[in-house]
Design a protein around this nucleic acid. Structure first.
Length: 273
DNA sequence: GTAGGGGTACGC
DNA sequence: GCGTACCCCTAC
């Protein structure tokens, strides 16, 4: 074709996922109209967003190549990666497209990947939160796994910073430019990558209240996963544990608050431990 | 406006 | 040559 095949950058990818998380899948035009995402995705059209999301979803479900001609040839080919950046959270999810068994979710696997057994400090509590979040997901009819995976990935990229409607365009792009694995040195400058403040948590919770039950559950599951990952990072980086630990605690605080809000709102029927 | 299908260029 | 990623076209 005439177009030189403009490859999707990790920044655009993150913006897309963040947009889906924010507005929901299928609302490509809304995502494109968002002042924050439009700064990154201004080159893309709604069709591009849809197409890219399709590719991501296909890969997340385990189908590596397109089954255009294939009928029912199931292969256990694990989707490797797309471009330079490959998140460490390899999606082990290989179930169907919708809700059927939300057990092998990403949150449980991310902990397994960690070489260490994990700190015994708060894992137990987080595990409980995970179970509740998953249960809520199942009770509410389930949410798109791709959305949840995106949520986890987005939050890992954005670190702990929430996704409000920035008035300044591309403010968070500087954070995204770094590799997904190697995060920016968060010990030197705590001015940008600060931990969650009280107001920030409140802002996130306010958004959760406006969400539906399944969306809120996805948020909670994501928050738990992030808290778990952050704690694991804190354990891994011992010398820089101070900053990472603060990050972990902030994530944990958010996860806890999210679950509390979710439970306080409208819980259809959750098996409260 | 969105979803699905198809074609093609690129990388291995 | 195969698999993947991106773009274009068409139908709903």
């Amino acid at each position: 074709m005439g177009a030189p095949k403009q490859k999707w950058t990790s920044e655009e990818e993150a913006a897309l996922k963040a947009g889906v998380v924010k507005h929901g899948v299928g609302k490509w035009r809304t995502i494109l109209k968002d002042p924050e995402f439009s700064g990154v995705l201004y080159l893309r059209s709604n069709v591009d967003l849809k197409d890219k999301w399709r590719n991501l979803s296909v890969m997340a479900n385990g189908w590596s190549s397109r089954e255009k001609s294939r009928l029912s040839i199931r292969r256990v080919h694990q989707a490797p990666k797309h471009d330079e950046n490959s998140l460490a959270t390899s999606p082990p999810i290989q179930s169907d497209e919708d809700i059927s068994d939300v057990k092998p979710l990403q949150v449980s696997s991310s902990r397994d990947v960690v070489p260490f057994s994990g700190p015994k400090r708060s894992i137990v509590r987080l595990d409980n939160l995970i179970m509740e979040a998953i249960t809520t997901l199942k009770e509410t009819g389930g949410s798109n796994k791709t959305t949840i995976a995106a949520f986890i990935e987005v939050k890992r990229r954005y670190r702990i910073a929430p996704i409000p409607a920035y008035s300044d365009r591309r403010r968070s792009s500087s954070l995204l430019l770094t590799d997904g694995r190697q995060k920016a040195p968060l010990r030197g400058d705590k001015e940008e990558t600060n931990v969650l403040t009280k107001s920030q948590i409140d802002l996130e919770l306010a958004k959760i209240r406006s969400m539906s039950a399944q969306e809120a559950a996805a948020v909670a599951a994501r928050a738990v996963a992030e808290a778990e990952a952050a704690i694991a990072e804190a354990e891994e980086a011992a010398r820089e544990a101070e900053a990472a630990e603060a990050d972990a605690e902030a994530a944990q605080a958010f996860a806890d608050a999210a679950m509390k809000t979710l439970k306080g709102r409208n819980t259809p029927k959750m098996i409260h431990a």
